[in-house]
């Protein structure tokens, strides 16, 4: 039997990769429907695990606002997805409205659409404490000057203001759930940065209440402080020594704060997670 010479198998014409199927390397972020009519796309400010933050406007071009958008997650069942999004948008809005009404420094709530998954809040002009503080510490380092006297007083002042802002929040029955120096802002324009003495000034504003809840439990409050203490330790080790200033001012900020400080000592001993053994 004669074996037919193997015919050269025609190489299949390689189709150019279909980009629309494969997906471009950086898939475009989903835009909420609210922006559908805008001539220019909004500015994406930051992106977290759950939400996208845009800078845009509310009602009039003169009113800046932040829009926090929770896009739907394709891997979740649609009904569950809608319920989670709705719950989170509403709970964050409720907490912000309550805080603001009671005089806790937080952004105002302008509007929301729990079905579309967005929350529109006041735009806080300023910078997060993490950046301001690092900049300030860097300048001290360059000057080769130790954190003494005048400088230390400025930093102590900031710590005290943070402590009483947190105390005020706890005092109205809210815990933040994710206190870091990135979730604390100092109000004030960038021109203030030029004046060295002003870099740590400005009203302290608490932001990102995505993990916040209504609670008056000392345990929850102490964990808030503990999380911030750890964040300070890892992000600004040079300022860690002054965390006690924050706690002193916290202790004076509302009735029941001293109990929380006691509780904080327990939490430090065991960490953020409560032991499940007895």
């Amino acid at each position: 039997m004669e074996i037919e010479p193997a015919r050269p198998i025609p190489a299949p014409a390689l189709a150019p990769p279909d980009l629309s199927q494969v997906g471009p390397p950086s898939s475009p972020l989903p835009l909420p429907k609210i922006f559908a009519n805008d001539p220019a796309p909004p500015t994406l400010v930051t992106q977290g695990a759950e939400a996208l933050l845009y800078r845009t406007t509310y009602l009039l071009p003169s009113i800046a606002c932040a829009l926090k958008y929770r896009p739907s997650k394709p891997y979740r069942h649609p009904i569950l997805d809608a319920r989670l999004t709705k719950h989170r948008i509403l709970s964050e809005a409720r907490v912000l409205v309550k805080c603001r009404k009671e005089g806790v420094p937080v952004p105002a709530v302008f509007a929301l659409d729990e079905k579309e998954g967005w929350l529109m809040i006041e735009w806080i002009e300023g910078e997060v404490v993490r950046i301001r503080l690092n900049e300030w510490l860097q300048r001290r380092k360059e000057e080769g000057e130790e954190l003494r006297a005048r400088h230390e007083a400025v930093l102590k002042g900031l710590m005290a203001r943070i402590g009483s802002a947190i105390g005020r929040m706890h005092g109205v029955g809210i815990v933040h759930g994710d206190l870091t120096t990135s979730n604390l802002m100092l109000r004030g324009g960038s021109e203030d940065l030029l004046a060295d003495d002003k870099i740590l000034e400005g009203e302290v504003v608490l932001i990102d209440f995505g993990l916040a809840s209504q609670s008056t439990a000392d345990e929850d409050r102490a964990v808030d402080l503990y999380v911030l203490e750890r964040a300070f330790g890892s992000t600004h080790p040079r300022a860690e020594g002054l965390f006690s200033e924050l706690l002193v001012s916290y202790g004076k900020s509302f009735k029941g704060a001293t109990v929380v400080l006691k509780k904080l000592e327990d939490v430090r001993m065991r960490g953020r997670k409560r032991s499940m053994l007895g």
Binding site: G103, A108, V109, F110, E203
Partner: peptide, 28 residues
Amino acid sequence: VNGAGIHGGNEDGNNQDEVHELEVAVLG
């Protein structure tokens, strides 16, 4: 909460502040 004198003398703006806080509460 934020200590005195951070924004300088802003006493005249008190009434405006009050209206603004009322507006914010209503919007919420």
